[in-house]
Write a protein that binds this DNA or RNA. Structure first.
Length: 552
RNA sequence: GCGAGCGUAGUGUAGUGGUUAUCACCGGGCGUUGCCAACGCCUGAACCCGGGUUCGAGUCCCGGCGCUCGCACCA
């Protein structure tokens, strides 16, 4: 890791308005970052590129749910119970400590203990307060890592949280999504938005934040349907995989699926799409790897989980999680609400049930009289291979002899056209801030020009914060006016951001444009006034071509 | 959360109790030049916050906030 490079990069990001500590004039606030005048557009372009990639699936919609979420929703999802640390407070000095940390000397794995067990061990062992040495602890309480809030005022206010992930909104909207997709699986819903986690210790710049941008897709599937995920687009691309319990390997997604390294082909396909997306926003493909969660690391719900990790200035960082969550989430919300969150699976053909035998009423009725009904039930329970006569014990204890003449073959069709089931879900979840960090990290190039360091952000056009810069060679003789006209014409085009810059020498302006990664610069010069052509300069090659200004 | 270090213009910095806080890059204006951070003149901009010690605090002490690193945490 090159810490000096990281320092120079961070300085540049602040100086140029990519990333800024939030609320700095009030002293700042840990774990909160602004995307500045340059960074803001990178963020929205990365979000858009993400949406575009998943929309290619053809059966995915974008939705947007509130960040303010009622207590009950996150209780049902398991976040209230699981997403917390157990804290206790020293009654002498009011120092708060984590109960499991205090008990580490006394228990092999205090982290795994439930609240009551922690309380028991704490009371029994009585560790001294690390701050003041007293042994006097308050009751152990769960300290949730979610931000609390109250929805509504006064007595009518109900407890809620800022969401720790966007996923729950997709689950609670399941029935509307199911209708929208004409009741056909598979389909997906996705959203990009903010998530909140009240981290104990946010660190490493953009890597761990208290409010962060996330993008999640919940893709609902029928676990019994054959998968038809086409992995051939990636058959020529070896992926760096780190499977559970094994060393790193290079293999294609198809091979990894065939060998059972990746347990579900849709997970594999999403890994492929993830790889494509990361590459499209400018992540160096050589610095992407996929690591499988080990059994004990997996979240409470997951059946298989692969993280996409990206290597950058902080080492290998988890930026994407692709989890096969089974039916956990929908089932949890069903249980909590009593509503059904299910899809219907049609059978290939209506099911036909052929009962082997039934009674022949004309002979059995007179023969068994009052027992005829019980005889019927007993006969219909018999196997088709039964030979008559046979001795049967009826439900009332009577034993009867049933002869061939009392029965006849029974064939009836019971129409069952399908069944309701809880879909399984495969969830790719992206930490957008971490991805943007690595996009910036990988784009940042320190070149040398005339013996001095020269900084260029080699952004892909898909994420470049400004698409084109327009310079008048100098601002007189109408060159400024022409350049401004070109600038406004470009800005009027949807999706295009142009920057006008006339201050300083032309070389200085190219340098400024390079530092925020503008792919192309247009310069209006004397010749423009004569023949309407301008120079178009490419950021990475430095080459200039002369083109008619109307062709831009 | 614990421990250590740090906090001075937009950025990077100098400043071991004493006047008007150093330097560079940077930003803006004018002029000159006219296609890759050119030059000249002018100009803009900082001691994280609060308390204490002192005749006097950017400097010393205490607390807070923030940053970096290590430990811990990271569904």
């Amino acid at each position: 890791m090159d810490e000096e490079r990281l320092d120079r990069l961070n300085g540049m990001l602040k100086r140029r308005g990519f990333l800024l500590p939030s609320f700095e004039i009030h002293g700042g606030s840990k774990g909160l970052y602004d995307f500045g005048p340059v960074g803001g557009r990178i963020r929205s372009k990365v979000n858009q590129e993400w949406l575009n990639h998943w929309l290619q699936l053809g059966n995915v919609v974008e939705i947007s749910c509130p960040t303010v979420t009622p207590y009950a929703v996150l209780e049902a999802s398991g976040h209230v119970g699981e997403f917390s640390d157990f804290m206790t407070q020293c009654t002498a000095c009011e120092e708060a400590s984590r109960a499991d940390t205090l008990l580490e000397p006394y228990h092999p794995n205090p982290d795994a203990l439930k609240r009551d067990d922690l309380q028991t061990v704490l009371t029994k062992e009585g560790p001294a307060c690390p701050a003041c040495g007293e042994v006097s602890w308050s009751e152990v309480v769960a300290q949730n890592l979610m931000f609390n809030t109250t929805i509504g005022a006064g007595a009518s206010g109900r407890p809620g949280f800022l969401r720790p992930e966007t996923a729950q909104g997709m689950f609670t909207s399941f029935n509307a999504l199911y209708r929208h997709f004409r009741e056909r699986l598979p389909f997906g819903a996705m959203q990009v938005g903010k998530g909140y986690r009240n981290e104990i210790s946010p660190r490493q710049g953009m890597i761990r934040l208290r409010e962060f941008n996330m993008a999640e897709l919940e893709y609902f599937i029928d676990p019994q349907s054959p998968t038809n995920d086409d992995l051939t687009p990636w058959d020529t691309t070896p992926f760096s995989l780190v499977p559970d319990g094994r060393g790193p390997v290079e293999m294609t997604l198809s091979a990894a699926c065939k060998e059972g390294v990746i347990r579900h082909s849709t997970v594999a396909r999403f890994m492929g799409i993830t790889f494509d997306f990361l590459q499209a926003v400018g992540i160096d493909p050589k610095r992407i790897r996929f690591r499988q969660h080990e059994g004990d690391e997996m979240a409470h719900y997951a059946m298989d989980c692969w993280d996409a990790e990206i290597e950058g200035s902080y080492g290998w960082i988890e930026c994407v999680g692709i989890a096969h969550r089974g039916c956990y989430d929908l089932e949890s919300h069903e249980k909590a609400t009593g509503k059904t969150l299910r899809a219907r699976r049609d059978f290939d053909q209506p099911r036909t049930m052929i009962d082997a035998w039934t009674i022949d009423g004309a002979t059995a009725g007179p023969a068994f009289k009052a027992n005829a009904g019980l005889v019927k039930a007993a006969v219909e329970a018999l196997q088709k291979e039964t030979e008559f006569p046979v001795s049967l014990t009826l439900a009332n204890g009577d034993v009867v002899e049933v002869a061939e003449e009392h029965v006849k073959p029974n064939q009836k069709t019971v129409k069952e056209t399908g069944e309701w089931f809880i879909p399984h879900v495969i969830e790719p979840a992206f930490g957008i801030d971490r991805i943007i960090w690595h996009v910036i990290d990988h784009a940042y190039a320190e070149l040398e020009k005339n013996g001095e360091t020269y900084t260029v952000m080699k952004f892909m056009p898909t994420v470049a914060p400004v698409d084109i810069a327009v310079f008048p060679l100098y601002e007189k003789d109408g060159m400024g006016k022409t350049a401004a006209e070109i600038h406004h014409r470009l800005c009027a085009r949807a999706g295009t951001v142009s920057m006008y810059d006339a201050s300083g020498s032309i070389g200085r302006r190219y340098a400024r444009a390079d530092e925020i990664g503008i792919p192309q610069c247009v310069t209006v010069d004397h010749q423009t006034l004569e023949d309407g052509t301008v120079t178009l300069r490419d950021r990475d090659s430095g080459e200039q071509v002369r083109v008619p200004m109307d062709s831009l």
